[in-house]
Amino acid sequence: MTTFSHTPEPEPVPLRPGRKLGPIAFTVSSAHRAWLEPTRDRYLKSGHTLGHLSSRVPLAKSKLSELMRGVGRYPRWEVIHRLAEELKLPTWPLHRLWRQAALEAGKSRDWVTRSTEGTIVIAPSRPPLEHGALRSITEEGYRNYAGVFLSDEIRNVAVEDTYAILWLSFDNALSSPDARRYAWNILRATVKAKTEHRDHRPVLSNAAFDTVALHAQTSPEGEMEQLAESLELFTAISRLPDIQLDVMVLRRMRGFTSEQVSELLGIPLATVWSTERHAERFLEDTIELPPQTGETTS
Rank of each mutant, 00 (worst) to 15 (best):
Y142W: 04
A179G: 09
P128R: 08
A173L: 13
E130L: 15
W184A: 08
D152E: 11
A164H: 09
W167H: 13
Y182M: 07
L187S: 03
F170K: 02
F149P: 01
R155E: 12
V159P: 01
S125F: 00
L168W: 08
R188Y: 10
N156T: 14
S176P: 15
T162Y: 03
G141A: 06
S169Y: 10
S169I: 14
N185E: 15
I186Q: 05
L174R: 11
L150K: 13
D161C: 14
N185T: 14
L174H: 04
S125D: 08
E153A: 15
P128I: 09
D161K: 14
A164Y: 08
D161W: 11
L187K: 04
R180N: 07
A123D: 09
S151M: 12
A179S: 14
R135K: 03
P127K: 00
D178L: 13
H131W: 11
E139F: 06
A183I: 06
E139I: 08
S175R: 14
V121Q: 06
A158M: 03
F149Y: 08
E139Y: 02
P124E: 09
W167Q: 06
N185F: 11
D152F: 04
E153Y: 08
N156V: 10
I137Y: 05
L168F: 14
E153M: 13
R181N: 14
L134D: 02
F149R: 01
S151Y: 10
L174C: 07
D152V: 10
A133N: 15
S125A: 09
S176D: 11
F170G: 01
V121L: 05
A146K: 01
Y145E: 04
R180A: 04
D171Y: 09
W184D: 01
V157N: 00
Y182H: 12
D171R: 12
A173R: 05
A173V: 14
R126A: 12
S151P: 05
I122S: 07
E130G: 05
E160R: 04
L134C: 01
G141Y: 07
A173E: 12
R181S: 13
S169P: 09
R135L: 12
Y182G: 03
I165P: 05
S176M: 14
G132E: 15
A173P: 14
E140D: 10
N156E: 15
I186A: 00
D171I: 12
V121N: 02
A164G: 02
I154Y: 02
N185A: 11
N144Q: 13
R188S: 04
I154R: 12
G132Y: 01
L168M: 15
S175H: 12
T138C: 06
A123G: 06
Y163W: 15
G132V: 09
A173I: 13
L129D: 06
E160S: 09
R135M: 14
T162H: 01
P127D: 01
S151A: 14
S125H: 05
E130K: 06
S151D: 14
F170R: 04
L166V: 11
Y142T: 00
F170Q: 00
V159G: 01
L168D: 07
V159Y: 01
